[in-house]
């Protein structure tokens, strides 16, 4: 059972205090979008064995959504950061690169 540190309140919250929200950094496609873009936004999800970015809500705590970078294979957590981020912060990226030299990058 994971522990993730909420970047808002600093609480090291165990999984039962959190609710999961799936893949992070999705871009919303609205009414004018193509079928392909909308399908990708709605349904196409990464399922990597390794580095992954996820949405979590500190549901029983401060109620804030945050994002987490972790390894789905070893459960190593590289960092958590506010939901108001369009891409992972540089320090998180750097940490991942240092720990996973063969990681292909965020994009």
């Amino acid at each position: 059972m994971l522990i993730l540190e909420c970047p808002y309140c600093g609480v090291k919250a165990e999984e039962t205090e959190l609710s999961p929200g799936g893949e992070a950094h999705l871009k919303r496609f609205g009414p004018d979008s193509s079928d392909a873009d909308f399908e990708a936004y709605m349904f196409a999800r990464k399922n990597p064995k390794g580095v992954h970015f996820e949405r979590w809500r500190h549901a029983y705590g401060c109620g804030k959504w945050f994002l987490a970078a972790r390894c789905t294979a070893t459960l190593e957590v590289f960092g958590t950061y506010p939901a108001q981020s369009t891409e992972p912060p540089v320090e998180v990226i750097d940490k991942i690169k240092a720990k996973r030299p063969d990681w292909k990058g965020f994009k």
Binding site: S19, G21, R57, G63, A83, Q84
Partner: peptide
């Protein structure tokens, strides 16, 4: 309520 907060926090912050 969670749905509202999700959109306010994660999309239209």
């Amino acid at each position: 309520h969670g749905w509202m907060e999700d959109w306010l926090q994660c999309e239209w912050w």
